[in-house]
């Protein structure tokens, strides 16, 4: 049936009665749906500092910096909140049960100073005992140990870090091992130095 303008009028009157659709935002906080993809946040308990998220990030919003300070070093992972596109790839790629970096429901992200638009997380790094270069974050090594179980005893870097973490191996114990001829094999080593020590029969200390 042709009813020109009648439906519009009914809808208009309905609109007047129902009232505005506008949400009362500042007074009534907005809660997004559970699946909402908001600001990704690092989780201090789970993140192992492996940089898988940096690898997959399509917007290059995740970056890191390794800072070496004498015998200790730390890795700072940055998440730039202004370049982030909230795609959730970091969460999907996270090796720590997808919990190391997780999308939150946070959406109210306006800020004034762009130079401060980042979040960080710090991870302690393990250094090579010979050349002093960076091997991996301590938590990452521990994560590998946990994954591979007793197989980790084939690799001194892994089990030493693990034992140190458990408090079973202190410096005294390690010093006593060092008396042996091939003590360089039982050290926390970077990949390069491990290759060196495996291929050559050199003792790093004596040079023979």
């Amino acid at each position: 049936m042709k009813l020109p303008k009648i439906r519009e009028l009914i809808e208009a009157i309905k609109a007047l009665i129902v009232g505005p659709y506008t949400s009362k935002f500042p007074k009534k906080p907005h809660t997004p749906y559970k699946s909402f993809r908001g600001q990704p946040k690092f989780n201090e308990d789970y993140c192992v500092g492996c940089l898988a998220c940096e690898q997959v990030c399509p917007a290059k919003a995740i970056d890191h910096k390794d800072i070496k300070n004498g015998k200790t070093a730390k890795r700072i992972i940055y998440h730039y909140t202004d370049t982030c596109i909230f795609c959730g790839e970091c969460e999907a790629a996270c090796i720590a049960e997808h919990k190391g970096i997780k999308l939150t429901n946070e959406w109210d992200l306006a800020f004034f100073d762009r130079s401060k638009a980042f979040e960080t997380i710090e991870r302690e790094l393990v250094l090579c005992e010979i050349c002093g270069s960076i091997i991996a974050p301590k938590k990452h090594i521990l994560w590998i140990v946990e994954k591979i179980g007793e197989l980790s005893f084939s690799n001194p870097t892994l089990y030493q870090t693990r034992l140190k973490e458990l408090g079973l191996a202190d410096d005294n114990l390690i010093a006593s091992i060092k008396e042996n001829a091939r003590d360089d094999r039982i050290k926390t080593l970077c990949a390069h130095c491990r290759r060196q020590t495996t291929l050559t029969t050199k003792n790093s200390k004596t040079g023979g």
């Binding site: 659709y21 997004p32 749906y33 699946s35 909402f36 993809r37 596109i85 909230f86 795609c87 959730g88 790839e89 999308l103």
Partner: peptide, 19 residues
């Protein structure tokens, strides 16, 4: 249109750029 955008948010987590 808000309704369908809500549907998209429920499914994909965003009103647009569904990833």
């Amino acid at each position: 249109r808000e309704e369908i955008l809500d549907v998209m948010e429920i499914i994909s987590g965003n009103r647009n750029n569904y990833a």
